[in-house]
Every structure is written in C-alpha cells, then in structure tokens.
Design a protein around this nucleic acid. Sequence first.
DNA 1: CAAACTGGTTACCTGTTCGTAACTAACGCT
DNA 2: AGCGTTAGTTACGAACAGGTAACCAGTTTG
Lengths: 114, 114
Amino acid sequence: MRDAAFCTSACSMTRAMGVLGSKWKLIIIVHLTQQRRFGQLAQRIPLISRKVLTEQLKELEEDGIVRREAFAELPPRVEYSLTPHGQALLPILEQLSAWHCATPAVTAAESAPG
Amino acid sequence: MRDAAFCTSACSMTRAMGVLGSKWKLIIIVHLTQQRRFGQLAQRIPLISRKVLTEQLKELEEDGIVRREAFAELPPRVEYSLTPHGQALLPILEQLSAWHCATPAVTAAESAPG
DNA sequence: CAAACTGGTTACCTGTTCGTAACTAACGCT
DNA sequence: AGCGTTAGTTACGAACAGGTAACCAGTTTG
C-alpha cells in the first residue's frame, strides 16, 4: 500500500511508512539480495502470491528502490535489483532482523499483565 | 496486525514483519519518545484514531515492546513507555527516517521507466 | 496440436483493517 | 442533575489488502 496522506505528513516516520508500510515490501527488499528473477522471488519468499509480488515490485520500482531489467528473450526473463537508494536500506533491515532475533522469550501470560 | 503465519516463518524479516508489520506500530514507537499519555499520543500522531491507537498499544504491550502504567486516579491516567526491547528499536527507526529523508526527488515519469 | 516455459494481468471473492460515533465508568464541579 | 474529564469498548459500515484461478503472449519441443 502506498498511502498518499502518510506520504505528506510532517512526521518523517509517517512518511517512511507511507512508502514502505506494506507488509511485504521490506521482505521483498531483503530477498533481492539473493534472488533476482521474478520466478525465484515468488518461490523463495514465504507465503507470497505472484499477484502481490508483481504489485509490490511495481510500487518499489516507481519509488526508486528497485530496478527492473527485461531481457529481449522468450520466454520472458526479467531481473530485479536494488537501486543505490534501496541498497541503503539493507543495513537497517539487517538490524531489524537482528533486533527481532533478540526478542526475549515471553509466555502469553507474562506478556500481557494488563 | 499480528500475523501468526509470518511469526513462524523461517525468514527472520518475515517474522519481524509479523510483529511490526502494521502501518501504525513503528510510528507509535517513535512518538513514545516524546509523549506518554494516551491522549497526547492520540493528538500528536497524525491521522490515527483512538480505536486503532488502543488496539496497537495493546499488541505492542503483549509483545513486550511497550509498557503500560495505570495510575489509581480519576479521571484515569495511563502512561505508556518503551521497554528495553522497544528502546532497542529506536536507533533503527531513526535510521529509517533518515533514509527516507535522503530519498532522491523523482518525477513520476522517471521513476517508472518500465 | 498440445504442453511447457516466463512474467504479468484480471475478475472475483474473502478477510482484515480502519474510522466513526456512541457508549462506559467514577469523580468533581456547577 | 448535567457536564467535563480520561482511557477504553463496541457495533457497524467502508475501504483496503490479499489470494485464487484463469487468462495472455510467443517461442520451442514432442
């Protein structure tokens, strides 16, 4: 989802979420470090459908995060890669993954004392 | 949204998105560095409704990211703050905001050559 | 002729998210 | 008695996100 109202907010985190705030985009960006072909991405990203992958890649391309290269072949071969702007996200996403791996184990009982 | 299927994925970014992948959560976390009262948060976070704020704070509390403290007062006073686990997100979110501020200006025409 | 390949599109449907507006509780004040 | 305060709840409807399945194109192969 690209949220126009978010994108024009005075709050920079809100603007960032306006562009990246789909549940799939950060996942796709991370996977682009390992696969480039559309079909490979569709196979390797857990739980995603081709329809959503296509849509999200299109938005990422429009936002200058991803680059699309179509080769003049049949059957069609298209490869996606990160632009420098997209590459700049990678260290941040690695920290986010690491943050989540450091999540303390909590039981349901103690995580919601309220 | 908390997505159970995402939370059990083998991919760590997918698991992280299973917990944080709502469009509001990172925004709320950032705002908790400046406001603690529920009403202040509702006023200062752009575009959010009290219903969504309540729901998202509850999930953040359940996931050990946010701490809720209710004072024995009337009318009720409740303050929210980040747990150490939530605090650990802040440098990452600052980088995300900075990344977005560094977004190159693109016209619609040049951002979607495909 | 049919099948396979790839990347993408589309119609339809379901599930989720969200916003609105009204409501709740108990106290203090007028 | 009614109003204001705060934080939270709830019902309802709207909007959005997403999945499924079928379709498309052109070449190659059997």
